[in-house]
Simulated scan of single mutants.
Amino acid sequence: MKRLASHFLFAAMVALATMATAATALPEQPTLHVPPQDRRGEEQTYLTFPEWFLVFSPAEYADWLQQHPPTHFPFFAHIGQFWSAYGHVIAATRGRYPFNGEYHTMICVIGASTTVEYTIKGVYDTLIGRLSQFSLPANATPEDRLATRVERDYVDFIRVEPWYKFDFMGPLRKLWSDTPWWGPHALRKWERRYALSSEWLVKAAYGWMLGKAAHETYAIPKENTPVVARNAPADLPAGVQLLAQQGDEYLLALPRYQGFSDAATALARRGTTFEEIAGNRDTILVSVLGARGIAPPDYAPVFFTQPLLTKPGQQREVLQVPVGKLETLLNRYANVPGTIEHIFDY
């Protein structure tokens, strides 16, 4: 009887140990998922980088204009950075994901447009702009100061909206109605009036045509990105919506574009972890700004780097971050203002 009891006890202990081992070996499976109609391909986190570079570059230009004339801005080097980054994107996505022809077409269109624009600006400011700027400080005329303000307004706008929706005619009207026609540095004044009028008229016309073509060719993009997360706070950040909840799992809707970076950072700082973003659980790109030579964390390999051409010693690192580690990365840089530049939403 005692032997039978001991055999029974031994079998029970083995069973319990097996169950415990199985429970340890199998990770907890999520119960919430992004609905199929709201999922996006993982390749889009890569493909959005060239698009966002054309936000970063004007932002660098807007910062430059605060203290410097436009004549020395590295337009041609920025063209090179755009196409080099696109080359990295092609290499990373070729053969790994289905070809996203629509996105590649859009990148080529905006890349070619920017190449033409920056080439014209670079040549014009080298040959003509420097003559009118000669011996003058930055923002010496009302026209220069208006251009500086408009460039900042433009950057703030394109962080949340397509560039072709920007109202270029508004600044053009101000140029001819609000700035005095005569005053000091007359040569610079009238050269700037000519240059800015030409630029804003062309952009207004081209933007109108591109907007019509985009509306007729492409579907209207969704304004939110669905995210499966754990430990979301009761007071959700601005723009974040609760769609569903099961236990400590939450299906959230975060705003897209710059709003996604802001909302995800706010959630991470409140202890929220990310499990699935637009149906993806693997890689999401994050760009980090900082001094050269600082090593990234081991779990986030560098995709590529770019020097900040107007800020010697500074660089942009584009990191490939596992979705499950996004909260860890964001909190790693939480106390370094301006370090996290952008999270490349799908």
Rank of each mutant, 00 (worst) to 15 (best):
A229W: 09
Q258M: 09
R269M: 06
C108Q: 15
F99P: 00
R94V: 03
I90H: 06
V323Q: 00
A85M: 08
Y206V: 15
A22F: 14
G259K: 11
S177P: 00
M1V: 04
Q315N: 14
W208V: 02
G95H: 03
Y346W: 10
D248E: 14
A91E: 15
L242W: 03
A205E: 14
Q245F: 07
A5D: 02
N139I: 01
S84R: 13
A295E: 14
A219S: 12
V240C: 08
D167H: 07
Y86R: 10
E317L: 10
P322L: 07
V318D: 03
S197W: 05
F304C: 02
P233K: 13
Y61L: 14
V160R: 15
K121R: 13
D345P: 01
G239N: 01
A91K: 10
R292K: 15
Q66T: 11
P36D: 14
L254W: 05
V109T: 13
F82G: 00
E151D: 10
E317N: 12
A295R: 06
N139G: 13
V123R: 05
L330Q: 03
G239R: 09
A253F: 08
K121W: 10
G183Y: 04
P50G: 06
P312Q: 10
G239F: 04
P337A: 01
Q67R: 13
L330K: 00
P301M: 08
Q258K: 13
L254Q: 02
G101M: 11
D298K: 02
S135C: 11
A92T: 00
N231M: 04
W190G: 06
A138Q: 08
A11M: 09
A234C: 11
K311R: 15
P233Y: 12
I110E: 04
A17F: 10
A264Q: 08
W181F: 11
H7D: 02
M13S: 14
L26T: 07
H215T: 15
P50S: 10
A205C: 11
Y154P: 06
F10S: 09
G207Y: 01
I110L: 07
Q67E: 15
V155L: 10
Y299G: 05
Q315G: 09
T119E: 12
R192V: 05
F8H: 03
